[in-house]
Amino acid sequence: MKSKLKLLLNSVAVFAALLAMWQGIIWAFAVPSYMLPSPWVVAKTFAMRLPDLWASTMISAEAAVGGLLASIVVGVLIALVFARSRWIRTMFYPYTILLQTVPIVAIAPLILMWVGQGILSVGVVAFIICLAPIIANTTQGLVSVDENLVQLFLMHNASQGQILRKLRLPHSLPYLFVGVRISSGIAVIGAITGELFAGSGQVGRGGIGYSILYAQTQVQTDYLFALVIAATVLGFTLFFAVMFFEWLALHHWHESAAESRADG
């Protein structure tokens, strides 16, 4: 408990030092506000334009969460197919790696062209960027089941459906969560990237990405900073929401999700 408090105090101290440095640079080099607004100005803008920020964040959140959920559904289905045969796996696995290495900014315009402007295509960009970690981790979970356990199920004349439901799926749940955790971090990046290409709209009606573009053209550097903060908070929130669900689902039985009791 004491060490946790100390850790918190240390983080706060680091944060304060960074703010002081930021302010110090502005004073020392007389940086104009349109290049680098002071922490105080950013804070004020953040507070004053909270309704706009909130609206933008909600739009981005919708696309990010939608893309993430879709990637979980589709990713698990693909993993189930991959887990069925080594043959399919070796044939198609390289393409999931490709999915991970293709720069999303390069394909976002294509997606917008095919799917059309709007939140759907933004969600699709988030979906694509989220997909690979889900597929990779869930497949890993489905195929890493202890062979002896499979044999135990077979000994008791279990059907393939029973082996899937009672063995492979629960076994792969912690693996799926590893994938979802990774994807939750990048879902927001996907959504904002999508929005950067998503064309026109008004501030307050577009997501964070669109608002960033708008603030840039208007040289509202303070608002740009506020948007960066909003995006960061959104990413964190999503990540911790996933952690919470992970804890909920796994803490009874999984080592990583709970402190293990010493056994003798």
């Binding site: 202890d146 002896n148 356990l149 135990l152 009672k166 063995l167 629960p170 076994h171 749940l173 009874h252 039985w253 999984h254």
Partner: peptide
């Protein structure tokens, strides 16, 4: 089996 092979969940 040698390992207890229990289902941890």
């Amino acid at each position: 089996f040698q390992d207890a092979t229990l289902l941890p969940w």
